[in-house]
């Protein structure tokens, strides 16, 4: 006849089925289950008794954990994970695109409006003769626009050089156009505050025809 378990061993098994063994005890228990066939066999017998009485012991108040279907992320099917990941990527991409769109002045409606206005102010200006011996016939506004176009083509157009140009310019029409170019340059580099400062100057200038336009742009930027 096979040897029955001792009370100490029964207590150990009881605690195992009660899920109360610590990590070390559990590791030792598993090891013994693997190496000691007799112990393994007796645990199996005790298991029958345990599960039988566990059913008898069940109280009506016990929640039905068998029906508790996981609803958190951990319980999601793989395809749902994929859909979730793709949705997150789409949101991130859209957000990044939108953020960049707003960061890129070229895509801002205000910038487009200023650009269009500067082009309009600068249009119709004919460059002087390329012949160095010919007499200069350009007006101050033409000279300023030519200078700014040259800088633009050379890639050296910046607010600093434009400001220098403005400081040396006395002609009202030329100053008006230069200031709008400065506004455009600030908006292009997303320097809204300085753009607004220049627009305020334009708006306050009684001799400018574009004062109202500056106020309109300022209001759009607020």
């Amino acid at each position: 006849m096979k040897k029955k378990l001792s009370n100490q061993e029964l207590e150990l098994i009881e605690r195992f089925f009660d899920l109360e063994l610590g990590a070390e005890e559990l590791a030792a228990f598993e090891k013994r289950m693997e190496s000691d066939a007799s112990f393994h066999n007796e645990v199996r017998k005790y298991e029958k008794a345990y599960h039988l009485t566990a059913i008898l012991e069940k109280e009506p108040s016990t929640p039905n954990f068998d029906d508790m279907k996981p609803h958190a992320l951990g319980g999601m099917k793989p395809w749902k994970w994929m859909v979730g990941i793709l949705a997150i990527l789409a949101i991130l991409t859209t957000g990044y695109w939108y953020a960049n769109m707003n960061d890129n002045p070229a895509d801002q409606p205000v910038f487009a409006e200023v650009e269009q206005y500067v082009d309009m102010l600068s249009s119709g200006v004919v460059r002087g003769s390329d012949n160095p011996d010919s007499e200069p016939t350009m007006t101050p506004i033409e000279k300023a626009i030519n200078q700014m176009n040259d800088w633009q083509q050379a890639g050296t157009l910046d607010s600093e050089s434009l400001t220098q140009l403005l400081m040396n310019e006395q002609d009202v029409d030329a100053r008006e156009v230069i200031q709008w170019w400065i506004v455009r340059t600030y908006l292009e580099s997303n320097d809204i505050e300085n753009a607004k400062n220049i627009l305020n100057d334009i708006a306050k200038e009684p001799n400018y025809n574009s004062s109202n336009k500056a106020k309109e742009i300022l209001s759009d930027l607020e």
Binding site: K45, Y46, K48
Partner: peptide, 8 residues
């Protein structure tokens, strides 16, 4: 439980 185990 212990008694049932003993019987099994």
């Amino acid at each position: 439980r212990k008694l049932i185990y003993s019987e099994i």
